[in-house]
Design a protein around this nucleic acid. Structure first.
Length: 471
RNA sequence: CGGGGAGUGGCGCAGCCCGGUAGCGCACCUGCUUUGGGAGCAGGGGGUCGCAGGUUCGAAUCCUGUCUCCCCGACCA
């Protein structure tokens, strides 16, 4: 009799599989207030690694970290018409403080364009102060009607970047640079997710933006997930918050600003892009535990050998964890690490000690190979890189196989039931076409050039729309 | 807000129709035996059955009210 599967199989019920993974891999729990999320240590470890890698790339693009307040005066939101209209439905508003009703309600930030705009206005005097490149790590609150852990929660963690530039060209170039050098590079190189990039249709722009760029990843059920966005805000916020500078000719000029964000949603994307029926599969470059050295039974010195291997790996720069909890059955422990998606397991028991080897198990393929103890410190780092590359290749193949070129709305609907549809943009550009897509929950995810690059605007000739169902 | 469902140990559920003061699986604790893929056996701890009224000798079960949560649709990183 086969044992019941640890997780609901993906093919049977994908959302349930996702829930099962969150629970069994100890990633997150629902918080006490609807829509809130408790991120457990293993899940937070994934986020911390994402933060570290993203932070490097953001700083490499020249931005500096700063912090802005959680509380925003309601009046700030109202200064930019589109912005307040877009965010009003999802605001949490504080009306009481210190036991008294407040004179002016305070909004819990849904995003920080307004406060940061206010301070940019104060800090920027001359063209010598530009560009001003800021980034903030924090939490934001957007009241969600249908929350899902990591993918859409009322409170979530993210980074939001805000920049001010002297010219429109400079702002546009920076928004594009962040999308490419920070977001896309991170998602492809670290998360092993082959995201598509493009611009959003004008009706789907960020509230207050003149252009929105985005990265879209494909999940294993064929749905799309937006994983990072970068906005050109034009001079909308500069006008609303008086962000001006004196140019070299001593003339007052309005700044051009941008904003860009990536959130804990990426954790959900990671799970749904690489996870299989045995659990999570964490790409090695991201994994905060890359290798677990598992003592099968502590007999004939197996425990000591395992500890030695673990130490050797740590010295070789591998993020290794020793599992010597021999009071728990071996099968249980290996299943648990598999659920958590640790890329490599090294299993060491008495038989291995006798043979001078360890059994190396790849999480991505399940393949088991005996490796001489003397070769582990050189084999493992190489294999970690191989697994990283293989996961990216697998995800890329999946995406390509499930992306269909079509040339009609009917074709889009057909293709989007199982994956992405790539269609000439004019076919779905109209309001009417969008409405027809909407009946099957299909949306235009992004608009790109034929070669997959990011267009300047949606009016260029020869553009394609990527359409899909989405999270 | 429209449509559907559910509230019973930490989690998942049964019991309700035919009232008699609570049960199962998983998890947890102790002991022994185990440990090369989710251990076995024995013992044990833990629930005023969402809340408030009512009916009754007696309510998880029947009646009324109320609250909450989940699923499907419209907004969103």
């Amino acid at each position: 009799m086969a044992k019941a599967p640890v997780l609901t199989p993906q093919a049977e019920d994908f959302p349930r599989w996702y829930q099962d993974v969150l629970n069994k891999a100890e990633l997150a729990d629902n918080g006490p207030v609807r829509g809130t999320m408790v991120i457990r240590p293993y899940g937070y470890g994934l986020w911390e690694r994402m933060q570290a890698e993203m932070d490097l790339r953001i700083k490499a693009c020249g931005a500096e970290n700063a912090y802005f307040p959680l509380f925003i005066p309601e009046s700030y939101l109202k200064r930019e018409a589109d912005h307040v209209e877009g965010f009003s439905p999802e605001l949490a508003v504080v009306t009481h403080g210190g036991g008294k009703e407040l004179e002016e309600p305070i909004v819990v930030r849904p995003t920080s364009e307004t406060v940061i705009g206010e301070y940019m206005g104060k800090w920027i005097q001359s063209y010598r102060d530009l560009p001003l490149l800021l980034n903030a790590w924090g939490n934001v609150v957007r009241w969600e009607l249908r929350p899902r852990l990591f993918l859409r929660t009322t409170e979530f963690l993210w980074q939001e970047g805000h920049t001010a530039h002297a010219t429109r060209e400079d702002a546009a170039a920076y928004a594009a640079r962040i999308l490419e050098d920070a977001y896309r590079a991170f998602m492809v190189d670290i998360l092993a997710m082959p995201v598509l990039v493009g611009i959003k249709p004008s009706y789907d722009r960020f509230a207050g933006a003149i252009n929105t760029l985005a990265c879209e990843g494909m999940m294993r059920d064929g749905k799309a997930l937006q994983m990072g966005t970068s906005h050109e805000l034009g001079q909308n916020f500069a006008k609303a918050f008086d962000i001006q500078y004196l140019d070299a000719d001593s003339k007052q000029q309005l700044c051009w600003t941008t904003s860009w964000g990536s959130s804990t949603r990426m954790v959900g994307g990671l799970i749904m892009c690489h996870g299989d029926d045995r659990g999570l599969r964490v790409p090695p470059r991201l994994a905060h535990i890359q290798v677990v050295v598992l003592v099968i039974r502590d007999e004939d010195g197996a425990g000591g050998v395992a500890e030695g291997i673990h130490d050797e790996l740590v010295r070789a720069g591998v993020r290794s964890r020793l599992d010597d909890r021999v009071d728990t059955a071996f099968g249980r422990r290996s299943t648990d690490w598999e659920l958590k998606g640790v890329p490599i397991r090294l299993e060491i028991g008495p038989r291995d000690v006798a043979d001078g080897q360890a059994v190396l198990v790849r999480r991505d393929t399940g393949e088991k190979t005996p490796v001489p103890l003397t070769e582990i410190a050189t084999t493992v780092p190489r294999l970690l890189e191989q697994i990283q590359a293989d996961l990216l290749a697998e995800a890329t193949t999946m995406r390509d196989e499930r992306t269909t070129d079509v040339d009609s709305v009917e074709g889009v609907l057909e293709a989007a039931s199982t994956g992405f549809a790539r269609v000439p943009w004019p076919v779905v550009a109209g309001e009417q076409a969008a409405a027809r897509l909407g009946t099957k929950a299909v949306t235009v995810r992004c608009i790109q050039r034929e070669d997959g690059s990011v267009p300047d605007d949606e009016d260029e000739d020869g553009l394609y729309a990527i359409c899909a169902r989405s999270y």
